[in-house]
Design a protein around this nucleic acid. Structure first.
Lengths: 210, 210
DNA sequence: CGTGTCTTTGACCGATTGGTCAAATGAATG
DNA sequence: CATTCATTTGACCAATCGGTCAAAGACACG
């Protein structure tokens, strides 16, 4: 009666084990995609990294693009949450410094996600373009308006709001995306301790009203 | 007598035409590599982009890696020149702002080179690792010492010198590497005008002695 | 035990990968 | 014109690519 053959990924994975295996695949795929990008990644390497055979991997996901897409969509919301968490009613400088902190924590705790995102953008964002000029743009516009209000009230030093947001993105993500370069220059130390205090200095001097 | 079969790339390309074709190949390769990284790029796409057949391309370059390597080595020197151009005898803030300017100009004029570099770093810098922990590290150490001296003299606000250099890299390269995202958020305007004045504000407030 | 479902895999497919090679062109020089 | 060298190309190669499929294995439940 049921024409649907197997489709463990339809609806939601029933078994917890299925969910776990799908998660393992996504984990492995994140490793591979974040290093070599979509085109550079191969199903064989993802399957091997996940401890599966290639046909078995394709039993849980219909295609390479499906894995990539699921990684990307799952990523963007997480990536923008810290921006949404800025409280227009809060103390401006504190809010901004807290945002920087959260964003830097993301770079420290999820560097592969950051690199995956960077790879997608470097390719021209073929799978993310709509979201960028849609949701993201709207969210930035909205946040920029908050910043402008704070500046008008004299509670934040005058800056270009959007470029300031870009600066936060650039400075925090840099520690995830260019981690190899930074470690090569700095040596063995953990870069993130120094980064946290440095970024606090940067944005305090940039944003604190005089 | 001469066992060397053809090797147009040995020594230096004799004919100007050879040089031109090699250059055209490097140009096309820069397009492809900077978008999809080393693994994601294909010789066919490079050859097509250069207006050559694949065997003809391999007549001028021995392998895919050779093209990539030549691009990378040619890049790194150009990429670090602005850093070397910092004059320890100059006015500290002016020197730093000028460095930011030069670096931002590089992002504007050579975005593909910036993206190529970013792609290589994202992969873990397998072809650049030695240079990073060698020449680059030495150059950064040296520049950091200059900054420390300026800070000690009170001619520059106290900052972490190396993280400050990282910040300059992050903020300037961001406008090349994430250009798609920035344009999606900003709309049609040229981001670099706003970027230049914004970055001047950032580093003036960060570095100007009080 | 048997039976039906879920999972895994080896074999395989056509297309594409980086790269080779011999032969066919082109151009220059005697 | 003949010769020589530089250039280009079509055919081809083994390996790998993303993906399919039928059959085997694992597992539940009666």
């Amino acid at each position: 009666m049921a024409e649907i053959p197997a489709e463990p990924q339809s609806g939601r994975g029933r078994t917890r084990i299925q969910k776990a295996k799908r998660q393992a695949i996504l984990e492995a795929a994140l490793d591979v995609f974040s290093q070599d990008g979509f085109r550079g990644a191969t199903l064989d390497r993802i399957a091997t990294a996940a401890g599966l055979s290639k046909p078995n991997l394709l039993y849980y996901f219909p295609s390479k693009e499906a894995i990539y897409a699921e990684l990307l969509t799952g990523l963007l919301s997480t990536w923008l949450d810290p921006l949404r968490a800025i409280d227009p009613e809060g103390e401006p400088l504190d809010e901004m410094l807290a945002y920087v902190r959260r964003k830097l924590d993301l770079s420290r705790d999820f560097p592969r996600e950051s690199r995956l995102f960077a790879n997608e953008i470097l390719r021209g964002a073929p799978n993310l373009g709509d979201l960028l000029s849609g949701d993201l743009r709207a969210l930035v516009d909205q946040t920029a308006a908050v910043l402008r209000g704070w500046i008008a009230e004299g509670r934040l030093a005058p800056v270009d709001p959007k470029h300031t947001i870009f600066s936060i993105w650039a400075l925090t993500q840099h520690y995830a995306d260019f981690d190899v370069q930074i470690c090569a220059v700095l040596g063995g130390d953990d870069p993130f301790d120094g980064a946290a205090t440095h970024l606090e200095t940067v944005f305090t001097r940039l944003l604190a009203p005089r």
